[in-house]
């Protein structure tokens, strides 16, 4: 019974420790439950081609980058340069998923800014994106052997490419 008087003190100390750690914890970053799982099945028309792009295209020993983009998304434009660098300087296959876009606009976007993608699947309904757990554009997945290794929400900046994406790809 004597200890009960110290209970409020103990609770306060514990809470302050908790707050101290959550102060430095970035709550805006969400982990995807799909990390560590297989890429869900999909089969999409390709943008410059009459063939299909399917989830089987993403199965390879080499790491594969899957980027969700759209011509109407402004951050995607900034990110596109980073993707171009990645495709030109490093031995990585990049696949694109064109999210809820207009075909001519999408083609104009690629023709104007260059094409870093091996294949581009067109997801007009946005359904395949939901299957991939996408919040919005742009988002990027790193895939190996058909398993999702990493997910990046929002545009990849140059420093993020150097600090996160490249080390991850090199490790694989």
């Amino acid at each position: 019974m004597r200890l009960i008087k110290f209970l409020p003190l103990i609770i306060i100390v514990l809470l302050c420790i908790f707050f101290f750690f959550s102060l430095n914890n970035d709550t805006t970053k969400l982990s995807s439950p799909l990390v560590g799982k297989e890429v869900p099945e999909f089969s999409l028309d390709r943008l410059f081609n009459n063939e299909k792009m399917t989830n089987k295209d993403l199965i390879s020993d080499k790491p594969i980058v899957l980027n969700i983009w759209s011509s109407w998304c402004i951050p995607c434009r900034a990110e596109h340069d980073v993707l171009m660098v990645l495709s030109e300087l490093y031995d990585v296959d990049i696949y694109g998923l064109n999210y809820k876009d207009n075909e001519t606009e999408a083609k104009k976007f690629i023709e104007g800014l260059g094409n870093p993608f091996e294949k581009i699947g067109v997801d007009t309904s946005g359904r395949s994106a939901i299957n991939l757990g996408v919040y919005g554009v742009p988002e990027t997945f790193i895939i190996q052997n058909g398993i999702i290794i990493y997910k990046h929400i929002g545009p990849i900046h140059m420093n993020e490419l150097d600090e996160k994406i490249l080390p991850l790809i090199k490790d694989l």
Partner: peptide, 10 residues
């Protein structure tokens, strides 16, 4: 929002 409409359709 866009994604909300998609989810509703889904």
């Amino acid at each position: 929002a866009e994604i909300a409409e998609d989810l509703k359709t889904l």
